[in-house]
Design a protein around this nucleic acid. Structure first.
Lengths: 157, 157
DNA sequence: TTTTTAGTTCTGCAATAACAGAACTAAAAA
DNA sequence: TTTTTAGTTCTGTTATTGCAGAACTAAAAA
């Protein structure tokens, strides 16, 4: 327990709650908790062993979780002179990208819907119209997002 | 095979592709394919056995998939006079709701982020500022969505 | 040169998921 | 009243997930 970070009950609970949310996004439990820990922890830059002992994970689980988060750009690490360890921290800016890419996935759905539409028989009129409306809706939303993003930036300056 | 719907290769491929997308949203494989079938099939209203035989599923898998989709509002069914079967069809309008609720989930994340922020130590200044920026970003986006939705409706009339 | 550090990779297990198939059921039809 | 229909529910199997623990590795330190 020598490396474990001391967390309050509230902090532990936040990690679990955010962890569950992350799991619902498709991440595995251990990965979700590592993500959450690095947002909640009072210290923002933690070593491998600090992550491992605070979350009580095995080395393999810790290693896999960290590497998965590094390759998906959700974590990054820094080093310190004269210190061999890496210090992992949440790449918070990735969350903004995350939100944006969430919207982009919609576009993928719209494309498939459009393909479906194009090969559908013409006699299911109401159905086809509904489908085309949704394609239009998604694409409109997606097209407007950059504007919305710009508007947000301007609203803060 | 007496009840199976005849599908072209293109239609089968679309079902698989859309099926995979649905799986990535967290649906199980069989459920995903039922969803997809009812968007791709030339006939839009299919019976239990038509779904079952077209997708080559067991009765239990078919029953569970259909019921799960009914309770989550993604399917609905109609009946016909003098016919005991139910005819299941995609509730396409649910897709628009789906897109909207996808955005609402973001709000949930923003709330947890905000909670995290409120209990963070004040000395991690840059980190906290980043976090607060993301909360603000998500909430702004979310707040603007109804306007965007209205704008879309007006753009089509 | 040997030992320690900071991880990584391999092996195996326990829990869960996803489904098939069979038994079952309630209502309608015969 | 019996049989059929249109599913539902139960039981068991297989595959996959998610992780622990141990063995391993490459670089640095001693």
């Amino acid at each position: 327990m020598e490396h474990a970070i001391q967390l309050t009950d509230q902090q532990k609970e936040l990690i679990e709650r955010l962890g569950v949310l992350n799991e619902q996004e498709g991440l595995q439990p251990a990965v979700s908790r590592v993500m959450a820990l690095l947002l909640v922890s009072p210290q923002t830059e933690l070593t491998f062993d600090q992550v491992r002992e605070t979350l009580q994970l095995s080395k393999s689980a810790t290693s896999n979780a960290i590497n998965m988060l590094l390759t998906t750009g959700k974590l990054e690490y820094i080093t310190k002179p004269g210190d061999r360890k890496r210090y992992f921290r949440s790449k918070i800016s990735s969350w903004k990208e995350e939100m944006k890419s969430k919207f982009s996935n919609m576009d993928h759905i719209a494309d498939i819907f459009d393909e479906i539409l194009k090969q559908r028989p013409g006699n299911t009129v109401a159905f086809n119209k509904n489908l085309s409306e949704i394609v239009d809706f998604i694409r409109y939303m997606h097209a407007q997002l950059p504007n919305l993003y710009k508007a947000w930036e301007q609203s803060r300056s």
